[in-house]
Design a protein around this nucleic acid. Sequence first.
DNA 1: CATGAATGAGGCTTCATTCAT
DNA 2: AATGAATGAAGCCTCATTCAT
Lengths: 197, 197, 197, 197
Amino acid sequence: MKQKSDKRRQEIITAAMNFFAEKGYHSTKISDISNKLNMAHGTFYIYFQSKAEIFSDIVEQYIKKLDQIFISVPYKAANISEFKNFVQTLGDEIFNLIVEDQKMAQIIFSQGANTDKKLKKKIVELMNKMDQLIESILIEGINRKFLVASMDTEIVAKAFRGMLVAGINDVAMNEISMERKERWINSILRIGLDGLV
Amino acid sequence: MKQKSDKRRQEIITAAMNFFAEKGYHSTKISDISNKLNMAHGTFYIYFQSKAEIFSDIVEQYIKKLDQIFISVPYKAANISEFKNFVQTLGDEIFNLIVEDQKMAQIIFSQGANTDKKLKKKIVELMNKMDQLIESILIEGINRKFLVASMDTEIVAKAFRGMLVAGINDVAMNEISMERKERWINSILRIGLDGLV
Amino acid sequence: MKQKSDKRRQEIITAAMNFFAEKGYHSTKISDISNKLNMAHGTFYIYFQSKAEIFSDIVEQYIKKLDQIFISVPYKAANISEFKNFVQTLGDEIFNLIVEDQKMAQIIFSQGANTDKKLKKKIVELMNKMDQLIESILIEGINRKFLVASMDTEIVAKAFRGMLVAGINDVAMNEISMERKERWINSILRIGLDGLV
Amino acid sequence: MKQKSDKRRQEIITAAMNFFAEKGYHSTKISDISNKLNMAHGTFYIYFQSKAEIFSDIVEQYIKKLDQIFISVPYKAANISEFKNFVQTLGDEIFNLIVEDQKMAQIIFSQGANTDKKLKKKIVELMNKMDQLIESILIEGINRKFLVASMDTEIVAKAFRGMLVAGINDVAMNEISMERKERWINSILRIGLDGLV
DNA sequence: CATGAATGAGGCTTCATTCAT
DNA sequence: AATGAATGAAGCCTCATTCAT
């Protein structure tokens, strides 16, 4: 009956994600979740040890997925054109993830920081990891002479992550249209490549 | 009496801000605040109607300050050099505000969204206002031919707001050094003007 | 089938005893028992109607055993020497029971009283029965002139039961060594026969 | 208002003691206590951090009192008569304590062992301390030649503690009559001095 | 204005017991 | 006989808010 059990577990996760995304962690009651699924609240505790645990699980799942993207997109950049493609693909993948897991994105990016300290830390870690990955791309670009050497890579990396997060939120809050996603990717790339002037 | 009363009110706000910034809205108890100030719990309710109210007050106060900046910085941009100066001054002022009210920045930018719906809405409003103000600057720049006409101003405005927020958080989290602030302003301006290539 | 069924029933009792002895009645969960035996929770209820029932069963089983001892040890006391032998044999048997069912002893003597009223009552009954049996031995001894007539048999019986219980606990708590058991029997007899002076 | 506050605290302790003594720790609900005192259950938590804490407090208070007795009774035993007096006084004081705090005695001596591990440990410690104190009296008596040297002081001390505990329980369970108390003291002393033969 | 004891709605969690398979 | 998911009564505890002093 593992199958059935897993299905129920997933139902709970889905319901929980919706509530977390909509009302935030603290305003979401276990009873919201159990009522939504027409089950006794005790049932929740068969699948999760606590409310904190399910939140933690959800966030962790998402962090792994994001991590995966940075790992899986092949870094090929023999020339500037390939470098641009790489960056574009990366952006694409990240936005696609959000399209898939819109609720999760909202949970993590629009309210992450203010629950338990442990989770806050986890989310800060995620941000730091994104910063590092972006910075490594910048440095690579500088070494290959695709990017200007004079930039402050630490800050610029964070700035781009900031844009990314804003984009994620924006796309997640607007019923997620592909068209909007494209606009974000194009704009960010454009800013990166040419600036606004 | 008014004087003394106002002083006490401000003390409560300051204490509350510190706790909100550190522990988040839900984890901050009225007793945290009253204990910190060595006053009875009941006293809090002489100055504020509820916990939600003080949070709301704090955020609103901050929104006004931010608003003030956009209003007060004189918009003079007869030529591109003046335009650059204007943008730089604006950035300077915004970061200065954060230096002054570090705790508030943390409250609003790193954990604002996940409290009550009303508050969430208010913070979204703040973001939207920033977007609008930034977009108006972009449009002005385009009209004056300082900026390229082909950009997607709506998205670009949000992207820059994203950078700004990332910068605010970064500066707020790092004991606020002037030097770091300068690095952010320079980097953002540089990105806007020249891109990374 | 009966055979197998009985075996399973006994396994449950054994597991339950261990947990009751270790954690007490209230802290022992049905799931502790079923997990220990690698069976489903529901299975427990095939063999016992409730948690209270199994506890009751365990205690009752023990009471019967104790009872049995008092019945089975032949009361021969034609002279003081035989009387001493009788008392010694009795003590021996009682301590032997504890050696066999160490866990039960712990359950009953060191934590029995604080569960349900019904159970408490049962344990008080056990104590009372012990008191009566001891008192009857005392009275017999007095009648035969082996013991001094002036004693307060009711109280003295309870006092000796108190020693017995202390001894049971002590032996049960100390990995049950035969040597320690002997020390207890000797000391109690010695106290009874000669006092400490 | 410390006064008033202390009064309420004491009321809660008294009510709690009664319920603990009657129903045991686990069967006593916070609502039993608050209902009894016609107060909201939340009020309980103004005075005590948790149910475990109040129980712990009660036990600890009692342990201290018992401890105090052993400390306060002056040990004078120049001759056997004084030694007897000393022992008698000690017994008297201990039983008097029980007369005063009948409920506490029941809590500690008839059900102590089976709540939290911490408390169990505390009660075992109490017993051990009693054992040590009694043993020290025995050894003192032996050194002074008031008592026979051949006894097994460790075991005998525990045996007498066992009698004491049985007496405490018995007196506590029987509406506490002075007369019964006297019978116990006399019987225990008599056993100790002369044995039963 | 200040106090702080009191309130009680409401949340989280546990676990004995049931029952459809 | 056995299973184990589901149930839900019941308990512990929190904390924003009130109010008599």
